[in-house]
């Protein structure tokens, strides 16, 4: 199985690679169209800033390619946010795979939302075998609204999308690569889709 991690100027490629290695997969890290088109699975990780990341994707014309990919595709953290329609972070137009807005958390509690939080209302094959109220590790200051495409919900000050799915497109706000056994289970589920 050919798993490609989409390389762009954002962090955590190393951690995702290691997490996949633990599951017996040696991913290819690439931003080349041909490599992405030939993949069985694509993972779109991300830690960083929305507008910088979108600019990079546009420079590589990946903003046009990604929404048309047909293989299982998984966005992580910033990856989820970039798969939405628009992000409040630097007023950024995103990929619009999910027709959702990404908003900044209100200042009524600490931001970033950092640490282990529970996920509920689990559906989707991505969450197969994951218990309701399992803990995942989150670090983010922006969130996607709750919507029909939600396959997991998390609550911090307000309910938000912990995971989304539409057709072959999957996305997680949490970091499965840093979420111990539960995170590993979710990555395994994605790899076996």
């Amino acid at each position: 199985m050919k798993v490609v991690i989409l390389k762009y100027n954002a962090g955590n490629v190393k951690s995702v690679t290691i997490a996949l290695n633990r599951l017996g997969v040696e991913p290819i890290v690439s931003d080349e169209k041909e490599v992405l088109l030939g993949a069985d699975k694509v993972i779109f990780p991300g830690v960083g800033q929305a507008s910088t990341a979108m600019n990079y994707l546009r420079d590589k014309e990946l903003d046009l390619l990604i929404p048309n990919l047909k293989m299982p595709f998984l966005g992580i953290c910033l990856g989820l946010q970039l798969m939405c329609k628009h992000s409040e972070e630097n007023d950024t137009s995103c990929l619009n795979i999910f027709p959702l807005n990404v908003l900044k958390f209100p200042a009524t509690d600490k931001v970033p939302h950092m640490g282990w939080n529970t996920i509920t209302q689990l559906t989707s094959p991505l969450m197969k075998g994951v218990a309701n109220n399992s803990y995942l590790y989150f670090v983010h200051s922006y969130y996607a609204e709750v919507a029909d495409q939600c396959v997991a919900v998390c609550d911090y000050m307000l309910p938000f999308s912990a995971a989304l799915q539409k057709d072959n497109f999957y996305a997680l706000q949490a970091h499965p690569e840093k979420s111990a056994e539960v995170g590993s289970k979710i990555l395994h589920n994605f790899l076996t889709l």
Partner: peptide
């Protein structure tokens, strides 16, 4: 360390 542990 990163290769061994799967927490932050």
């Amino acid at each position: 360390i990163a290769n061994k542990i799967n927490i932050p």
